[in-house]
Design a protein around this nucleic acid. Structure first.
Lengths: 334, 334
DNA sequence: CCGGTTTCTGTAACCGGTTACAAACTGGAA
DNA sequence: TTCCAGTTTGTAACCGGTTACAGAAACCGG
């Protein structure tokens, strides 16, 4: 068996308390004793059991993060930003992907019992589960999801950026705009849609917006929307898509069909995934790593400082103009 | 405080042993007693402490996975494949990104103490650390890294796929090929390079290969290689890049400079990242999720079955032909 | 060399579960 | 009713650490 603290104590001729003090450098130990213990530990190749330590300290020194998926760059980047800060704060990171898992709620509950706090990305679990966890005292931070009760949250700005994006399109001559997304299911998308409408609402008559609702925000849906518009010979001046995948699918089909983008119709996305750069897609970049990093810091505050008043962070986004919206060569942002 | 097993025992008028048996359904308990305990547990909202349980069972019920980064899709997909299977096997997943971390080795050691087994992706830690962990009895599986001693490993096929890729280029009329990568630092890349050479070696005289070594496998390096070749007016028939990022950077600069791809020069990558599709890049797709899933299963065998003879899995890859290598319109693979 | 501090160390009681073993039931046959 | 085998349950000893508290040792000036 691997050696325990008692083996080391015996080997060094001291009590387990002294070994503990030496290993964790928590109290003054006479130098001679300390060296004796260290020598014994080295000889036995002793490493304190994290399990024993965790139980005694009643803390896991680990945080969890729940996300739907890592396929796109979005969540992957958030997770990375989170992990980097968590590691800095000397906490391990447990992950849980809810994608295609029917027992997601149970898995999240289980996970809550294995860490000191939890970050929840997007709509991975229901509001009621969040409420329930919060009520049971689980430290929680929501990311990319509107605040629930007094649970901390971190989000990227949507409304103002969408408005800026729409205003840019107006300045490029767009008069009728078609928004593609699912504002009903996603609060983020709803805010973007609202921002777009606000910009167009102010700009007087002659400017119209319409909404095409899609179920999945993926390339396939985007292509389907484009195909339908082509079939009906009903192209707007611009398609504003709820995310890049939609926009890429849409853009790909339009170009493949010989439609001039941005000449005939403009296309925009949201997120700035890597492929958006290659496709020349105008989009909105979210500070993804920063979202994760901020969540990690908020969670640490909750756990370490026992903070009780909730905090809600809103991080700024950045409009990235590319060739899909500008007939004149835009300054490329990489 | 949250209730403990003793609180429930008192509430139900039984011993803690009985509560334990009911909670874990490990032994026969009379139905009436069982219901009484369950009622008490429900009333107190009791959830067994994972810490206590883990210590008693001397297992973490968690596995770790170490990777350099999640930025590209490669590791993210592997991690997802891993997580999915681990969750199925009822194990939590701890993650550790070594990217830009100077104390990576210490972090990995620390992590080893917090889980029952570890999956290591790529060259995140040195061979000596792997050896050391293995010697200490840590259950290990290496992914995307050549076997070390008798440690399990899972890899994607490189040599044969590279050979197939090179043969395809030969059939497209390529006579001199330039390989871009770092075969010295990466065994995977070395195998690809060897496969390429093998194909060209067989094809008789008039066919040449050369190697351009780069330090970083990123877009910037790829662009630099392209720029250098253009400046020297020394373009090969094809650039075969060690990964997609390199190829995309290279391809982007060539096209921006007005070079006809594939007319004048062909370009290939490796990995099939999402952007490769938009750039029309011929590449080799690895079964990334499957790599992770296989690693999870091997690790579980090591832990649960106490398997001792090492296993080394080699998963097959798939050549994806796109417009960057074929003057005739290739059948697009999505 | 003494008493009073100050510093170091050991004892033992936790942390919250699991489980071997023995004791206490149970029901049915004798 | 008694006895025995088969169930159920309780006692207590773990798992491997941390830490409050008290006792021992070292240090210091007088």
């Amino acid at each position: 068996m691997t050696p325990t603290i008692r083996d080391v104590a015996k080997q060094a001729g001291v009590s387990i308390a002294t070994v503990s003090r030496v290993m964790r450098e928590s109290a003054d130990v006479r130098e001679a004793t300390r060296l004796r213990v260290l020598a014994a530990a080295a000889e036995l190749e002793y490493t304190p059991s994290q399990l024993g330590r965790q139980l005694a300290e009643r803390r896991h020194a680990a945080n969890g993060i729940v996300f739907p998926d890592l396929s796109g760059p979005y969540y992957a980047e958030v997770v990375l930003g989170y992990e980097a800060v968590a590691a800095e704060l000397r906490r391990s990171v447990l992950i849980l992907s809810t994608h295609g898992r029917s027992d997601a709620e149970a898995a999240v509950r289980e996970m809550a019992g294995r860490c000191d706090g939890l970050v929840i990305l997007g709509r991975t679990v229901s509001d009621s589960v969040v409420q329930h966890l919060a009520a049971r005292g689980t430290k929680l931070v929501l990311v990319a999801r509107p605040p629930i009760g007094s649970v901390d949250s971190v989000n990227a700005e949507n409304y103002a950026s969408a408005r800026t994006l729409a205003e840019h399109l107006l300045s490029e001559g767009v008069r009728n705009l078609r928004f593609v997304g699912d504002p009903v299911n996603s609060p983020d998308v709803a805010e973007r849609w609202a921002g777009v409408q606000a910009a167009f609402g102010r700009s007087g008559s002659g400017c119209t917006t319409e909404l095409v609702t899609v179920d999945e925000l993926d390339e396939e849906s985007g292509a389907a929307v484009a195909a339908a518009a082509l079939a009906a010979d009903d192209l707007p001046d611009a398609f504003v898509c709820a995310n890049d995948e939609l926009a890429l699918g849409l853009l790909g089909l339009l170009r493949a069909s010989g439609v001039d983008v941005p000449g005939t119709v403009m296309v925009t996305g949201w997120d700035d995934v890597m492929a958006a750069r290659y496709a020349g897609l105008t989009t909105v970049r979210q500070p993804m790593r920063e979202l994760g990093a901020t969540a990690a810091r908020l969670l640490d505050e909750l756990i370490v400082d026992q903070r009780t008043e909730p905090r809600h962070e809103l991080l700024q986004t950045e409009l990235v103009l590319r060739s899909s919206t500008s007939s004149t060569s835009p300054k490329e942002s990489t």
